[in-house]
Amino acid sequence: MSMEPILKIENLKTSFMTSNGEVQAVRGVSLAVNKGEILGIVGESGSGKSVTSMSILRLLADTAVIKEGSIEFEGKNLIGVSKKEMRGIRGEKISMIFQDPMSSLNPLIPVGTQVAEMILEHHPERKKEDVKKEVLELFSRVRIPEPEKRYKCFPHEFSGGMRQRVMIAMALANKPELLIADEPTTALDVTIQDQILHQLRELEKEYGTSIIFITHDLGVVAELCDRVIVMYGGLVMEEASIDDIFEKPGHPYTMGLLESIPDIKQDKSVRLMPIPGSPPDMTNPPVGCPFAPRCPYARKICAQELPEFIELGEGHRTRCFLQYPDAPADEHNPFRR
């Protein structure tokens, strides 16, 4: 894996203009996706993880406005490109799969035709027979049994897992540089999730496609990702390699997330440690650290100022005052006891 970024987001701010005021969903997110890596974005609902990814392909609702920032891809700022140019990028260079494969597929068109359309849309010069052959090849790649027979089936004839395979086949049809997967396995059973995760791993190796994998499930992250970004309240709270995030979490929110899931070997008499309270209201986001109201270690300054990033090691950075060199080292500081 080279450390050459193929996508670079700088200070992205995306808001929704609603009748209740401006919902600041993404409030200054910077991140980079390296070539051939799987980057996990973890966060709860409302953390801004999906809006960040939707901003990349500009699949946002009409009420959404990208207020600031740049999204650099192949030397171009995607925020400036025209609608037409964006259509050329979607599905060709960057593709996306969503949580609910049923609502992403057209119920009136056979699945094979839908995948073929994806190729023909971007390569109209190609022969239909060749494209069909390629789709069948793709179907067997993503392990859809009996591709010939399945080609003519409609989405309703498929199970959830099979539909998601069709979506993956469609997303990979044009061998994109980047695949954005937004909770693609959340609606599936664990056995099917396991199959799909293995497949994504294999396809990443085979095609060298970089993947942004958005999820709330830390287990899935551990199985799949190389690096992780933890989001909360529209901001990146921590960024680290997969091992660091689980072994040396550098933010109280990350620690809280890890403590609130039971391990498969967890002692049943030990209580789970939930994070108290609920996520902030993004129409009126907190001035300071968005996690401060729920943070067991919060100090006065946390509610007043937003902490800047601090480097904890190579590729590991966090946004927390307690990690600052001048933070007091006492029993109330989990990082410096």
């Binding site: 664990v190 056995t191 999730q193 396991d194 995760l197 499930d217 830390l218 287990g219 899935v220 992250v221 551990a222 199985e223 997969i242 091992d243 689980f246 890890l258 899931i261 391990d263 498969i264």
Partner: peptide
Amino acid sequence: KGLLGSIPIANPRLA
């Protein structure tokens, strides 16, 4: 056994 084997483990080294 298969069902248990499919659970993602929240521990990258074990995973």
